[in-house]
Design a protein around this nucleic acid. Structure first.
Length: 417
RNA sequence: CGGACUGUAGUAUAAUGGUAGUAUAUAUGCUUUGGGAGCAUAUGGCCUGGGUUCGAUUCCCAGCAGUCCGACCA
């Protein structure tokens, strides 16, 4: 893609008052645009990142037998009333609707246990229908009293929500483990280290739930975790103080801020009861379906990646999610260098595809181009100039490293493989 | 929802009870090209409502909006 043709452009000035790194850098680079507090548009560059994150999530969800579907965002009041959740204060509710249905009210979906339970009634009647797992990647709405920290806490955000249906607790627990493993794979592919953290079960269950916490000072949660082993608990429930002994291995317990990027819940029969979601077992006896729900926030993950991977110049995207794999820059205005860079661009496009190569062919100064490349954070930067041509090489630099080197384009393809 | 601070051009900012200035971005031309280049010209702005005043972008009140802190947060 040609940089001169991009819809967005980078800015020199930082947005006023925004203090979080992810809001600053994503706005400066033209990845996102804030419409109002906690409400963001994904601009073309940002959407490319988000789509890659979503694709990774999809692949791992499909791998454990999840089927993708899409539920409505507009959810009629009766659904929420059935689970006694119409009263929660995070629901955005519709005001006056059209006259002929003035008694009909809707809430914008902030989670979908109700809707999926109602749907599941149509398809789950027998033990032969279980287990099942479906998920969606969808915009969620929550009337947060205070949106903050850019993409980390929004009023509108993307969520992958997976729901599973089981014969009994044992079957649920087996699947629950599977989801945790799938989430671990997702974090690995996103280059994020997340602690599987025990947390309160809230209204659903007395058992622990598990949160995936990425330790980062931008986080809102406090995580107590062992220095040695993988033991971690949300501070809300933990009995151990900082500096105390890890209950699992005896190591030293530390306290750090964490960003909750995912969570897994055992719902049990809460919604099966509310929605009469039953099945007949082998003996013809009526039993309640046992459910689980599992969430990941792709937009929050995107913000977390920026918080984790940046330097004073800009973002350093992991290879798996970068908007572009390669950022090609031509320096100097000699027609020769231009021509050579054009050729290199075609070569790169043939190798990686057009969507993976950003070519800065603008008539701009060297400093501006180099700074933009650092800000946008593609994993590889290639410079073509009179200098590199004299050596019959291109200059290749990894965004995460300090030094560049001169190599042939063939050697670069090997490096980037 | 409580507290603090803030609303001036696309963005970032300055000054002012009486014609609103700068940087950056944008457009045009010339020059320039390895870390946000230079010159010239041009485009573009005082959140809304009420009050005080001869006169309000400025002072007062209210609203709306934003950021931060706290409370909240399946």
């Amino acid at each position: 893609m040609l940089q001169s043709k991009l819809f967005s452009r980078t800015t020199k000035n930082l947005p006023e008052g925004e203090e979080s790194k992810n809001a600053q850098l994503l706005t400066k680079g033209g990845f996102v645009n804030k419409s109002s507090a906690g409400v963001y548009s994904m601009l073309p560059l940002g959407l490319k990142v988000l789509n890659k994150i979503n694709q990774i999530i999809r692949e791992e969800m499909n791998a454990i037998g999840g089927e993708e579907l899409l539920m409505p965002s507009l959810v009629q009041k009766k659904y929420w009333e059935q689970s006694v959740r119409w009263g929660v204060d995070v629901i955005y509710k519709t005001g006056e609707t059209i006259k002929s249905e003035k008694d009909l009210q809707y809430g914008l979906g902030w989670t979908h246990e109700e809707v999926i339970s109602a749907i599941a009634k149509h398809f789950i009647n027998s033990y032969k229908d279980l287990p099942k797992a479906v998920y969606q990647i969808q915009t969620k709405f929550r009337a947060e009293p205070r949106a903050q920290a850019g993409l980390l806490r929004g009023r509108e955000f993307l969520m992958k929500d997976l729901y599973s249906f089981h014969l009994d607790e044992k079957d649920l627990n087996d699947f629950y483990r599977k989801v945790i493993d799938a989430y671990k794979k997702i974090m690995d592919r996103l280059c994020l280290k997340a602690l599987v953290t025990e947390a309160s079960g809230g209204a659903f269950t007395k058992e622990f739930t598990h949160e995936f916490q990425v330790l980062n000072s931008a986080g809102e949660d406090t995580v107590m975790h062992c220095e040695k082993c993988d033991w971690a608990q949300n501070k809300e429930i933990t009995q151990v103080a900082e500096g105390g002994k890890c209950p699992k291995c005896g190591g030293v317990v530390k306290s750090d801020r964490g960003i909750e990027v995912a969570n897994v819940f055992r719902l049990g029969t809460k919604f099966s009861k509310d929605f009469n979601l039953n099945y007949l077992d082998q003996n013809g006896e009526k039993k309640m379906v046992v459910m689980g729900s599992y969430g990941i926030g792709p937009t929050r993950l995107m913000g977390t990646l920026v918080e984790e991977y940046n330097d004073e110049k800009g973002i350093i995207w992991p290879d798996s999610v970068a908007s572009f794999k390669v950022h090609l820059i031509v320096l100097g205005d000699s027609a020769k260098a231009q021509k050579e860079a054009d050729k290199t661009y075609e070569n790169l496009v043939r190798h990686f595809g057009e969507l993976e190569v950003l070519y800065d062919e603008r008539n701009a100064s060297a400093g501006e181009k180099l700074n933009d490349a650092d800000l946008l954070g593609a994993p590889w930067r290639i410079v073509v100039s009179e200098k590199t041509m004299a050596e019959k090489r291109v200059e290749v630099k990894r965004r995460s490293e300090k030094t560049a080197k001169l190599v042939s384009i063939k050697e670069f393809f090997k490096l980037a493989a």
